[in-house]
Design a protein around this nucleic acid. Structure first.
Lengths: 388, 388
DNA sequence: GGACCCCGCTGTACCGGTACAGGAACCGCG
DNA sequence: CGCGGTTCCTGTACCGGTACAGCGGGGTCC
């Protein structure tokens, strides 16, 4: 029982291959009666429908959009990423488009190194896992468009997508020429958060940031000038949040202490412990994410500090944790659903444009953030002990 | 600047198309020198590499595996699903295969109704969103294999995949002939959980389950015999968990009260409120998931009940919440990472088998569960007030 | 010095569809 | 009865690659 193709069915019914194709893909192109006969024959022969790969090639459209992100591990661990993916998926559902998660890590071979000499030809036994990867240059999947979310813009994967001339939408990425961007006002949100602390009277403020490169990471407390910090922070969201904090603090003449935490989505004790061990411990901490804030909160409790009396804490994102902490976490809210919605809308528009032969209209969206004041912030115990 | 294909590059360099193809896909088939020239010419012409759709068709392998699941919304909301997806993605990463999330909801057209007469031929203006869906029979995407996770086995989407003869792996699905299955010992875990409560002396036990169909849902307290309940519970995991509880309770001659909660991953107050309002309120509650248990716990607190003194609570899954509740949640642990690992291994094996022309070896795996006793369970306040 | 072999490249035959431009039959109409 | 307009179906020409057999030329082997 060999392959069943359009031709098989066509021969069976005694019509042309085109007619069978139409029976499946363009019902209005043949009489209902014939269509029934074709469908019946197809069912009988076990023909399921046009082969997606072939159809994709012929049509120039495959029915799937890609999502490239820095780390899939992160994407499924961090609540915000997860919610974003969920929003994308849901927004895509009614269009019938599938969402293809692109493998991020591995540098895409493509035109890369000529595979370091297979050293001998093992006789194709052991159809091990390697061949799988070798077969298809990791991540070269047929796509109609793609979303690039929180990636290193210089990574080979991003570059590959760009050169493939796919309609692209950048989300949480630094602005790029000719590409539609969807961003959140991280700077504004961070600025508001810092401003909030300053307004409460805090002058000894700490930041817990993330995403620093090797040179500065490793040490929990980071000794670097704001400019150095900014320059070293590659990822877009961390960069913008950092910039927002620093701008607000600088406006008030406050120089923050900076702690670093490699993983932004896992609560840990290190940053808070290091900060509170300082000679002049901060009275408030601005955290890169709610998860980080949660770690700080727990550590504060462990250290016997009361929040917000002894320490104020501000998070970022307003995730599910934020309402679960005791007291509720003051944080900066971003609307992740909306981010997904806007991104998908832009993507669909780009696909439409391409299909119509129009040039894509690039534009960028900046979604608002808002400060949500709950219970983890309050005035410092001894404001201005060293007010300049 | 028209399309750049292999031929374009071949002409430019003055070699055959095959040679260019080899330069990209099989470096060992031509001299390094020539390969360099080809690659250079390709770069110059802006040729990025073989078109994935065409390559997919020619090779019969596209470099992507699908994931079909009941509801993508659920998949990205429920922590367990999310972790499972994450595990899949991570496990897949080193192979270079992409993961395609299949749109679940919509019934797959394919051989379905002959689209209700488009009534007139609007002249292809208005390239609206609809065509997107119409164009590609929702979900007919090129795939090398697929995972079916927590789906209604009779849904058209599952049926379609099956008929497409794709290598398939079923996860959290009822056993199906000829398909590799990966399951968790939900029955055993639930049984152990119920046994634990019985051993502590509980006799008035409640269940909070999920996934009941319209006929029984709506009412929070479900009046139905165990047999009816089981028959009505379609989804595999809820069915097995329910069966585990009921078996253990029946062995001890205990008849449980049953409450129902539509969404298993959102904590709500309803089930607990309804249960505790009963004449003979339960002294212990077995919950379908940790999220449900969290809702019960919170409600208990609201009602002024102490846990575990006044009420014992058992969850299921051992998710992140379980260690965050106060006291820690007694629950049944399943190893989601392992589930993902096993599923992907099976999938890769199936792909290998197909590639080698071997028939797929179907087999099923049952992963263990284990009861994790924390602080939410203890002996009932007045054991055996009505011990039979 | 001829047989043999390996290397490096090419030609041909697909992979399984779809778009589009016909063309035959049929219809109503003046 | 001829004519324009439908309605249905078919033929041809791709879509952009890859597999595989084949073939000339420069060794090596004896």
């Amino acid at each position: 029982m060999g392959k069943v193709t359009l031709q098989t069915v066509a021969d069976r019914v005694g019509v042309s291959r085109m007619t069978v194709s139409n029976a499946f893909s363009r019902p209005d192109q043949l009489s209902a009666a014939l269509r029934e006969r074709v469908l019946a024959a197809a069912a009988e022969l076990g023909y399921v429908g046009p082969d997606p790969a072939a159809r994709g090639l012929a049509r120039g459209e495959v029915g799937a959009v890609g999502l490239l992100t820095g780390s899939l591990r992160h994407a499924f661990t961090d609540e915000i990423s997860t919610r974003f993916l969920g929003a994308i998926a849901e927004e895509l559902a009614p269009t019938g488009l599938a969402l293809t998660l692109l493998p991020a890590s591995g540098d895409a071979p493509g035109a890369g190194e000529p595979a370091p000499d297979p050293s001998g030809s093992l006789p194709r036994s052991e159809t091990a896992r390697a061949p799988l990867a070798a077969g298809a240059p990791a991540g070269s999947v047929a796509l109609d468009a793609a979303i690039v979310y929180s990636c290193d813009p210089t990574s080979p994967a991003v570059e590959l997508l760009t050169r493939r001339r796919l309609p692209l939408v950048h989300v949480d990425q630094p602005p790029a020429d000719g590409v539609t961007g969807v961003n959140v006002d991280d700077h504004g949100g961070a600025h508001a958060a810092a401003r909030h602390l300053l307004d409460l009277g805090h002058r000894r403020v700490a930041l817990v940031t993330t995403g620093l490169p090797g040179s500065l990471r490793g040490r929990t407390i980071v000794e670097a000038t704001p400019a150095e910090l900014l320059a070293a922070t590659g990822a877009h969201a961390p960069h913008e949040r950092l910039r927002g904090w620093l701008d607000a603090l600088a406006e008030a003449g406050v120089a923050p202490v900076v702690a670093h935490q490699p993983d932004s989505y896992v609560p840990t004790e290190e940053p808070a412990r290091a900060l509170m061990a300082l000679d002049e411990a901060p009275t408030a901490v601005l955290c890169f994410s709610d998860a980080v804030a949660d770690g700080v909160l727990r550590t504060a409790r462990t250290l016997g500090l009361r929040v917000p009396e002894d320490l104020s804490v501000v998070g970022f994102d307003d995730n599910a944790l934020a309402t679960r902490t005791e007291p509720g976490l003051t944080t900066v809210r971003q609307d992740v659903r909306e981010k997904g919605r806007v991104a998908v809308d832009a993507l669909l528009a780009a696909i439409d444009a391409r299909r119509a032969g129009r040039p894509p209209e690039v534009g960028s969206t900046l979604l608002p953030t808002s400060l949500v004041v709950r219970g983890t912030t309050g005035p410092p115990r001894d404001p201005g002990r060293r007010t300049a």
